[in-house]
């Protein structure tokens, strides 16, 4: 049903991908962060009705992780970027 544009492989069916969770949050750098920081990162996240950035992995294709914009209310799928670009701000 959903069609996702993989930055590497082009437009593909959602069945080629696996969902990877909320991408609106920033992971604490390795070795940093106390119990509370990690607790908030792992267990607390927004659940917006509307535009949402989330992780998907193209498991049956290039194996790239990407950040996808999806509207959680209408299931309209927007732009996707490789996760490494999204994380490093490129």
């Amino acid at each position: 049903m959903l069609r996702i544009i993989c930055p590497c492989c082009g437009e593909r069916d959602y069945t080629e991908f696996r969902y990877g969770g909320d991408a609106e949050k920033t992971r604490p750098a390795h070795g940093t962060g106390d119990l509370k920081t990690w607790h908030d990162h792992v267990f607390l996240f927004g659940n917006p009705k509307g535009p949402h950035r989330e992780y998907w992995q193209h498991v049956l294709g290039c194996r790239q992780w990407l950040v996808l914009e999806r509207n959680t209310a209408t299931n309209e799928v927007g732009v996707s970027r490789p996760a490494r670009d999204a994380v490093s701000g490129r």
Binding site: Q57, V59, W65
Partner: peptide, 11 residues
């Protein structure tokens, strides 16, 4: 998938 996530999205 977890190793790939860490290498691509975390580190």
């Amino acid at each position: 998938s977890w190793l790939e996530f860490l290498l691509q999205a975390a580190w």
